Amino acid sequence: MAETLTSCPEKALFALFGGTFDPIHYGHLRPVEVLARQVGLDRVTLLPNNVPPHRPQPKANPLQRLKMVELAIAGNPLFSIDNRELKHDSPSYTIETLETLRKEYGAAVPLAFIIGQDSLLTLHKWHRWQDLLGVCHLLVLARPGYSNEMETEELQQWLNNHRVDEPKKLKMQAHGMIYIADTPLSEISATDIRRRLHSGEACDDLLPPAVQRYIHSQGLYRE
């Protein structure tokens, strides 16, 4: 579960990273590790979700995806897991989860949500997207092949109004800023991994070994 306010070091920035993680792979983990060094994150909490609002239902079930996340981050002190969204049978909306976490952390703790550049460009299609910066900061990971400009001038102005270039500013207030990180571009995708596994191709350079062994033991992604 997420850390409580009483266990939060003063002025620490707490970051959350959501996804279906179907399966979790190096394209998730490695850019976040670089981001953590850039921004000065001591902990990133992974939020696997059960019913994503904007994409098909995951192939692996919630328990399998949770187990893969556990295996992927074992021994890495940067990461922890919050499984609250996996317990919901209805769609998990990011803003609602973040509002709950904000109540738990308290109003003054700097809190950030990590998204990919692709998600930033379509953020205006998210449920109550305009409320997000009232709850958290946004940390944006680079994605290959995506534009650096928002869809409309209005959205670009919104981004410009909230964007900061100095990571230390993120720790000076609890929410309201957007930081676009200089993280490595990763071509790895869960869709491609599932295709490879279905075809019997190797994924040694895409997945942590423990995750790959679990996938094989469970017979995942063969159909």
Rank of each mutant, 00 (worst) to 15 (best):
T152E: 11
A142H: 03
L5R: 15
G27A: 08
A107P: 12
R222V: 11
P184M: 00
I73K: 03
A72N: 01
P9L: 11
Q130F: 10
S119Q: 15
D22I: 09
D22N: 12
Q218K: 14
V44S: 03
E153K: 13
L98W: 06
L206S: 02
K87N: 06
L101T: 09
Y105T: 05
L120K: 02
L5C: 12
G176C: 07
L197V: 15
G145F: 00
P58G: 06
L170T: 06
L206R: 03
R195V: 08
E223N: 14
R128K: 15
K59E: 12
H127I: 05
S119V: 10
I73C: 07
P110I: 10
A12Y: 02
Q64V: 04
Q130K: 14
V211Q: 04
L71P: 03
V39M: 01
E96M: 09
S92E: 07
S186G: 02
M1C: 05
K103P: 02
V39P: 01
G27W: 00
L138G: 03
R163N: 07
G106I: 11
G176S: 08
R195G: 02
L46K: 04
T191V: 06
K125Q: 15
P23M: 03
H88C: 11
L47P: 02
E70L: 04
R55K: 15
P52N: 11
R43K: 14
E201I: 01
I188D: 00
I188R: 01
K67E: 14
L78V: 07
L141T: 00
L197P: 01
